[in-house]
Design a protein around this nucleic acid. Structure first.
Ligand code: FES
Ligand code: FES
Lengths: 143, 143
DNA sequence: GGATTTAAGGATATTTATATCTTTTATATA
DNA sequence: TATATAAAAGATATAAATATCCTTAAATCC
């Protein structure tokens, strides 16, 4: 469903939210990719994308690293849109440009409701909620 | 969500079901790829896969073509499994091998219900139901 | 100021998905 | 039996996603 990049991105954001709940220190690439079990160089690129999309802040140099702007609420859908684009949430499942009720594809009517509730869920789940579940050992970053 | 191959496959199956409701004649590659607006050579490969997976029957030679075994009910999930594999329906969204309640990923709890109802829907929608919608001009194969 | 650390940026490599082309095999019909 | 037709099978080609590597820029520490 999501691209590999997007999978990593969701884990990255959830992990940083989780870590910042405990300590305000910046977090570097190494501990991040270690924690979510992702290839380091590739994860660096994703961190870059997230920073460019302003979902994440970064500081260069010796004591540098990544952190979240605590004031801002970030939901899963924000991350998905930043990495995979909006097509995955709003586009037609069978490749028609946009998913809409006029000129619907053969799957449209069948999965419309289910898709919409999935989308709503991604739009309403923020990363701090997820971070709390991790703290309570109800969710994990790697197998 | 689905691969391009899978998108075409769903359309192929729905189209053949639709055509067979009107006439029992075999249908060839050309009218199929024309109807669903897909690249011909690539569509041939998908038809091959569907035939190997026994979702579709084929006849070679002069009056050859493709047809469906009318006795058998085929649901969208069958097609998805044949082309994209079961990972897309049963695997973890964030790349854990399997989606299950022990050792859940950070998205698991959030989207479990929504995903499950989507899966149920794909498991219960058969291609003849879709074909009927097409007949009533409530769904289309191409934009 | 020079050395060290860390993210950003750019270039490249590898793998997978998408797509096409050519040859072979099966079937019907003239 | 020869010919035409259509799917199967195999070989390539192209594009996109995934992944790594190397250099540059910013910040800290000595
Ligand atoms: S038009 Fe295809 S999913 Fe809505
Ligand atoms: S374990 Fe990841 S979606 Fe269920």
């Amino acid at each position: 469903m999501f691209s590999k990049s997007c999978e990593y991105a969701i884990k990255v954001m959830a992990f940083i939210a989780f870590r910042q709940a405990k300590s305000k220190e910046l977090i570097g690439l190494d501990p991040i990719s270690e924690a979510i079990d992702s290839p380091k160089a590739f994860t660096a690129k994703i961190l870059q994308q997230l920073t460019k999309a302003e979902l994440l802040k970064s500081v260069r140099g010796r004591t540098g690293g990544f952190y979240l702007d605590q004031n801002r609420e970030i939901v899963i859908a924000d991350i998905v849109r930043a990495i995979d684009g909006s097509k995955i949430l709003d586009g037609c499942l069978l490749g028609f440009g946009e998913c809409q009720d006029e000129n619907p594809c053969v799957l449209h009517h069948q999965i419309k409701k289910e898709r919409s509730s999935l989308k709503n869920r991604l739009n309403s789940t923020d990363i701090y909620t997820i971070a709390k579940r991790v703290s309570r050992k109800k969710a994990y970053f790697k197998e």
